[in-house]
């Protein structure tokens, strides 16, 4: 279980998160929707302490952390329980695909090298990159890089994987392969929070949809409620713009 209570964050004078609270049960997939600048990315980054929130508390399993006053040790503990998939992959440029996936196990978790390699190879095979293990990121396509990024997060077997618009930097043809991998992680029962613009994916995989706008949560609920019967006007506006309208197919 992961719970975020009253998270606040400002950059200079811009309030990006205004008192946001979310709760997600183990095994759930939460999809964060919202236009650019709505605070989705900042919310994810605060959970992993890539940004330090200005206030609020974070609960992961048994651990309770004051997000503003978290000590270095608390931050490290939270980071060991979470993993992050970046919009622009951020693979370690100086390491091969295998090296990228092994790094967290070997250096952070102190897993013996042999065991780490075995786990990393299995995970890379699972995302379909058995033949690219010795390639450096510069030698991989965007879709392949993002699959390595997902493997790097998943291999740590974290309590939650945070995915920040994992398909936004990819061309439409490659989006499918990434979403398929994410869906598989979901089916394994790993908790995930995904910020995305892929509505079809959200409808398919999400157990809970959160719609954000202007740093607050406008509406949250099961995908079918949000997509079929949105309560708030702002949600309706947003969905009208990105949901393919029924009659569009006839054009």
């Amino acid at each position: 279980m992961i719970e975020l209570k009253h998270a606040k964050k400002s950059f200079h004078k811009t309030e990006v998160l205004k008192d946001v609270s979310i709760r997600i049960e183990t095994g759930e997939v939460m999809v964060l929707l919202g236009s650019s600048g709505s605070g989705k990315t900042t919310l994810l980054r605060c959970v992993n302490f890539l940004e330090k929130a200005d206030g609020g508390t974070l609960t992961i399993g048994e651990q309770n952390v004051d997000m503003k006053r978290a000590s270095k040790k608390e931050i490290m503990d939270v980071r060991r329980k979470t993993a992050f998939v970046f919009q622009n992959y951020n693979l370690f440029q100086n390491k091969t695909a295998l090296g990228n996936v092994m790094e967290g196990l070997v250096t952070a978790r102190k897993t013996p090298k042999k065991e780490a390699q075995k786990l990393a190879e299995e995970t890379l095979a699972w995302v379909g990159l058995s033949d690219k293990m010795d390639n450096y990121p510069a030698q991989l396509s965007g879709g392949q890089q993002q699959r390595v990024g997902i493997a790097r997060a998943a291999v740590l077997n974290p309590e939650v994987i945070l995915l920040d618009e994992p398909t936004s930097a990819l061309d439409p043809e490659l989006v499918g392969e990434i979403l398929a991998v994410i869906k598989e992680i979901a089916q394994k029962g790993i908790t995930m929070i995904v910020a995305t613009h892929e509505i079809a994916f959200a409808q398919d995989v999400a157990s809970k949809v959160v719609f954000m706008d202007g740093g607050v949560i406008v509406e949250e609920g099961a995908p079918k409620d949000i997509f079929r019967h949105p309560k708030e006007e702002r949600t309706r506006q947003f969905l009208a713009r990105i949901l393919p309208s029924e009659d569009m197919y006839y054009i």
């Binding site: 979470t82 970046f86 951020n90 693979l91 370690f92 250096t107 952070a108 740590l156």
Partner: peptide, 21 residues
């Protein structure tokens, strides 16, 4: 900067990120 963040996100300390990445 993403190279640092990626290091932190998988649980490396700042020193480990510097040394390894």
């Amino acid at each position: 900067n993403g190279q640092f963040e990626a290091g932190y996100s998988i649980g490396l300390t700042r020193m480990q990120t510097l040394r390894r990445i």
